[in-house]
Design a protein around this nucleic acid. Structure first.
Lengths: 107, 107
DNA sequence: CCGAGTGTTCGATGGAAACCATACACTCCC
DNA sequence: GGGAGTGTATGGTTTCCATCGAACACTCGG
């Protein structure tokens, strides 16, 4: 039978709908900053949530990705049992020109 | 007699010595964001700390300015009984190109 | 159908940060 | 010198957020 059982699609916020303060707050955290940077260095849709090298448990990690989605920084898609990620470079850069470059251009 | 009594000069941090995360955290607060924006719309050294339109008391205000100094965003100088402020536009922009523009270019 | 793997949700906890009220330090003007 | 104006420091309260452990939902491969 047609399985109605699909996982709840993650809620996304387009960068255009994101206030500056939200974007700044999302990036002003060491873990999320690491996530964004690592994501930027990988091919799109190539990284599942659990594949990142950050010193927090699953629960916290899930929360951080939720924040990144809400800031229009990350897009997610379900692929089998995993949730794979993509950095919304172009869209986010259009809304906040230079911000992403700034963050990715290490210290 | 020669008055040794001078007020402690405020400690400043040059933008070049500021980590990205510190800069972002400094700007990711509604009160400080308002301070920076209001300061950007005023002539340099024209605004004393108390002259800003933010809904917090003196103590909190003083703290916020301390954070802004530590992020290399604001320079202060004592002028009589008041402490006047200046936005370090050029220096901060050299260290974090575009970030200040982004924040000042309202929503 | 069960078990392993993956991610979300919930409740609780700890620590950081914002805030206030008070007290203090300094500068100026009368 | 006294008093008004301005800012800082201190102590205590509250609010927020990052984190964890555990329970739950879903997918896939035996």
């Amino acid at each position: 039978m047609a399985t109605t059982g699909h996982r709840a699609a993650p809620e996304h916020t387009h960068p255009d709908d994101v206030p500056v303060l939200t974007a700044l707050a999302a990036l002003a955290d060491p873990v999320r900053l690491a996530l964004v940077r690592e994501l930027a260095g990988s091919a799109e849709w190539s990284r599942s949530c659990g594949s990142f090298d950050v010193p927090v448990g699953k629960a916290a990690l899930s929360h951080h990705f939720s924040v990144l989605r809400g800031a229009g920084l990350v897009e997610q898609r379900d692929e089998g049992p995993k949730r794979v990620n993509r950095l919304r470079r172009a869209e986010f850069d259009a809304r906040f020109p230079g911000l992403l470059d700034l963050v990715l251009r290490g210290d």
